[in-house]
Simulated scan of single mutants.
Amino acid sequence: MGPERVIILAVIASSLISMACAVPGIATFSNPTPLPSACYGSQVPSTLFAAVNPDLYNNGTACGRRYRIRCTGPTNENVPQPCRNGEVVVTIVDLCIACQPDQFDLSAEAFSRIADPNAARIRIEYNEA
């Protein structure tokens, strides 16, 4: 087996392992996104960011952490097929005090990359990137 095949197999295996360790959760989005954020003020690092529930936020230790998020399905009947292919990597910039355990409140741009914004709330899988 040539080195190219070994590299390709390693990339495929790492992708499968990372999503196999994914945690189920819920994602919502805020539009417009509230600023300033608890972690960065009004200077958020990108347009792909999120606020997280108090457990994940952990008194601010989550600031700057990056999470890979993938839509897995709907939470309401109004949009039965909300998911778009792919995943998004977001940076944690704030606390979502009203969020439940394993809930992310994504920026509008991050949400729209993985799901139809009309859904407003979706099922996800996530893991730290």
Score class of each variant (00 low, 15 high):
residue 49 F to P: 06
residue 41 G to R: 13
residue 38 A to Q: 14
residue 51 A to S: 08
residue 52 V to M: 10
residue 44 V to G: 04
residue 56 L to A: 05
residue 31 N to T: 11
residue 43 Q to C: 06
residue 31 N to H: 10
residue 54 P to C: 08
residue 57 Y to T: 01
residue 59 N to A: 03
residue 52 V to S: 09
residue 29 F to N: 01
residue 53 N to D: 02
residue 46 S to M: 06
residue 57 Y to V: 00
residue 48 L to N: 15
residue 57 Y to I: 07
residue 53 N to H: 09
residue 44 V to A: 11
residue 48 L to C: 15
residue 50 A to D: 02
residue 37 S to P: 13
residue 47 T to R: 14
residue 50 A to S: 09
residue 58 N to F: 00
residue 33 T to L: 08
residue 40 Y to F: 15
residue 44 V to P: 05
residue 37 S to G: 08
residue 37 S to I: 13
residue 39 C to E: 02
residue 32 P to N: 06
residue 40 Y to I: 07
residue 52 V to C: 07
residue 32 P to H: 05
residue 54 P to H: 01
residue 55 D to V: 13
residue 43 Q to N: 13
residue 38 A to P: 12
residue 36 P to M: 11
residue 51 A to W: 05
residue 47 T to V: 12
residue 54 P to R: 12
residue 49 F to V: 15
residue 46 S to C: 01
residue 34 P to V: 12
residue 59 N to H: 14
residue 34 P to G: 09
residue 44 V to D: 06
residue 39 C to Q: 14
residue 44 V to Q: 09
residue 56 L to I: 05
residue 39 C to L: 14
residue 30 S to R: 11
residue 42 S to E: 09
residue 41 G to A: 07
residue 38 A to R: 15
residue 57 Y to S: 04
residue 34 P to D: 02
residue 46 S to Q: 04
residue 41 G to F: 14
residue 58 N to T: 00
residue 37 S to W: 00
residue 58 N to D: 02
residue 59 N to S: 06
residue 41 G to L: 15
residue 43 Q to V: 12
residue 35 L to S: 08
residue 58 N to L: 03
residue 41 G to C: 02
residue 47 T to S: 04
residue 51 A to L: 05
residue 33 T to R: 04
residue 38 A to S: 15
residue 40 Y to A: 09
residue 39 C to M: 07
residue 39 C to P: 01
residue 45 P to E: 07
residue 55 D to T: 14
residue 49 F to C: 03
residue 43 Q to E: 14
residue 55 D to E: 10
residue 46 S to R: 02
residue 42 S to C: 07
residue 45 P to I: 01
